[in-house]
Nucleic acid binder design. Structure first.
Length: 458
RNA sequence: GUCCCCAUCGUCUAGCCUGGUCCAGGACACCACCCUUUCACGGUGAUGACCGGGGUUCGAAUCCCCGUGGGGACGCCA
């Protein structure tokens, strides 16, 4: 059997979103699984709505996700050009073929593709007008995911607009023919279009490619009904990139949306996904997007990052913000990251989580304050702690722990009686690394300064 | 409205093709407990689903039909 050639064919008319990414991913996975070719083709025939920014975003997002293309813009290939705006001569040539076969006609300045069959007038309830229908035999789609699907195409369709630009259905088919596409893997929303495409393939006298219509990604119940769109919360790939999500986590999650390896495995390296990925593992029903599960997947990948990797990502992330760019210069920055790493769920929450390590200007959580101050005698505990820490050894967690434990024991109390109020004073919250680590990293001066300052407010 | 696709816990899903091993398994979320100096992580456990109705069969989550529900398409957008 000849080599598999698949394509991802986005149009640069909007932000790159989850749905497009998943379609790209499934094509890429299939190409990698079969040792085939993954082609990137830019469908920019709608000149009005195309934008260079959106085009760049497609390249950036695919690259970020690791979905490298073998042929396409920037990669070359023998079937180019790979932007439809540069392929007009090819469309012209294929249009002439149809014209020569007597399968086109002009109307209102546009060129129509003529279906074969008897014509009749009928009222269309959806468009609220009378249209010309054609008695046509159903097109048979032998779909690798849906099975045999029949749909009758019963209206001529525009293939060249009155402004001279060819239309999606036409260029899509011509490109699939001329680029030697063997498998068309795309969203189920195209299933109804497929009959149009099959009629065109037949008119050109060439065999149709294999079709695989993958399920759609729908909004989560909280987001509403219908399919996910670029306007939905969490729909944009660029957002995850900005938030420093792990691209492998996004890929892993997306792969599981509509596909599974057939067993309970979820978190798996992309090599394994490639090995196991195939049409039988793809579901037929649509899947709702779950931001929480994606976040969980991302957390798992973040936690297994190496220290160096985690630091690099955070430096990159925090350097871009004016408030945090100074933090990365601090000598204790690496140590703070080591403390935060196992505690946080995603990289974009690190700045807020570690704020008090870098500035005296950290907020005091009112709710926590009220709660902590309501218990026991916090003022007394704070004063005792200050006295005990003044001469203490701050060089290690255990040294600090010994000092506090000795203090607690002397008063007939426990470590916990000092922990909560000390944490509130020094961090403003009730969450964070162990209090001894915080003290150690902050150092004696800053720790005592904060304890004294806070003691003065209660 | 017409046409097309789909239907297992709130969500993602295994099981369905090749009926019995399923009073339906895993994961996320939620709840409880454990771990613990806080908060997380982690661990243990709990709650939670075969859309409805017919049929086929000794037996149906699994096969068939009809409803219903969900999704999509119906552009000189892609």
């Amino acid at each position: 059997m000849s080599q598999v050639r698949v394509r991802f064919a986005p149009s640069p008319t909007g932000f790159f979103h989850i749905g497009s990414a998943r379609t790209a991913l499934f094509n890429w996975l299939y190409a990698r699984h079969t040792g085939g070719v993954f082609i990137l083709r830019i469908e920019d025939t709608d000149r009005e709505r195309n934008q260079d920014d959106y085009l760049q975003l497609i390249y950036d997002s695919l690259s970020w996700l690791g979905l490298n293309w073998d042929e396409g813009p920037g990669a070359g290939g023998d079937f180019g050009p790979y932007r439809q705006s540069e392929r007009t001569h090819i469309y012209r040539e294929y249009f002439e073929k149809l014209k020569a076969a007597g399968r086109t006609y002009e109307q209102d300045g546009a060129v129509y593709f003529k279906l074969l069959g008897e014509r009749y007038e009928a009222y269309d309830d959806h468009r609220k007008k009378t249209v010309t229908k054609v008695r046509n035999a159903p097109a048979v789609i032998d779909d690798r995911i849906r099975g045999r699907v029949e749909r009758t195409e019963d209206e001529d369709l525009v293939i060249i607009r009155s402004d001279g630009n060819p239309v999606f259905h036409f260029v899509n088919v011509v490109d699939d023919i001329t680029m030697g596409i063997t498998h068309v893997i795309r969203g189920e929303d195209h299933l109804s279009n497929t009959s149009k495409h099959i009629e065109l393939f037949k008119a050109f006298g060439v065999p149709v490619p294999e079709y695989a219509h993958i399920p759609l990604i729908l909004k989560s119940p909280e987001m509403g009904k219908g399919k996910m769109s670029k306007r939905d919360q969490g729909a944009l790939i660029g957002d995850y990139q900005q938030r420093r999500f792990r691209p492998e986590a996004v890929v892993n999650y997306l792969a599981l949306l509509g596909w599974n390896p057939g067993d309970d495995r979820e978190k798996m390296p992309v090599e394994d996904i490639i090995r196991l990925f195939d049409f039988p593992g793809i579901n037929q029903s649509n899947a709702k997007f779950d931001p929480k599960k994606l976040a969980h997947m991302n957390m798992q990948y973040v936690h297994e990052m190496s220290e160096a990797e985690f630091e690099m990502e955070n430096v990159a992330s925090m350097s871009t913000s004016v408030t945090t760019s100074n933090w990365v210069q601090e000598s204790h920055f690496p140590e703070v990251l080591r403390l935060a790493h196992p505690k946080i769920k995603s990289i974009d929450e690190v700045p807020e989580y570690t704020r008090y390590f870098f500035t005296e200007d950290y907020p005091i959580d009112d709710k926590v304050r009220t709660k902590v101050l309501a218990k026991g005698d916090p003022k007394a505990r704070l004063d005792e702690l200050i006295a005990a820490l003044e001469p203490a050894d701050f060089s290690s967690d255990t040294a600090i722990e010994e000092a506090i434990k000795a203090l607690a024991e002397g008063k007939g109390l426990g470590f916990g009686d000092y922990q909560a109020v000390a944490r509130l004073a020094v961090t403003g919250t009730n969450a964070g690394p162990s209090i001894t680590s915080i003290f150690r990293v902050l150092g004696r001066e800053r720790t005592l300064g904060r304890l004294r300052r806070f003691a003065g407010t209660i």
